[in-house]
Amino acid sequence: MQIHRYLELDAAAEAISCTECGTTICNAEENYRKHSAMRTGPITEAGVPFVPPEDKIGRKTDLEFREFFCPECAVLLQTEFAKEDDPIIHDIEIDLDSLSE
C-alpha cells in the first residue's frame, strides 16, 4: 500500500520501504523520518527566495530546515521546518490492526 509519494507499507511484512529502490526503511509502526538520511541546514536552503529570519522579524531564530532522503537511493522523502531541539514529527501512523480486519 502506498502511504506517501515514495513510501510503501507492506502490511504482511510490517515494514515501510522506498518505492524507488525497494529498500526497507523501518518497521511499519516506526517513524520513517528517523530511519531516513536527514540533512539539516538553515531555512534559506528551502528555496532560492528564502531569506534569514532576522531579515523578516529582526532577530535570529533556532528554526532549521530538515530534508529526509531514502538512505539507499537518496530520493527526497520529505522536508520539515522545526526548532533545532524539537523532535522529528511522526506524520504518518497507519493502524496496522485495521488493515487485517
Partner: peptide
C-alpha cells in the same frame, strides 16, 4: 512570513 506553514509531500516548499 518566515517560512511556509507546512512542508509538502516529497517536494520542496
Amino acid at each position: 512570513g518566515i517560512k511556509p506553514n507546512t512542508s509538502p509531500m516529497a517536494g520542496y516548499p
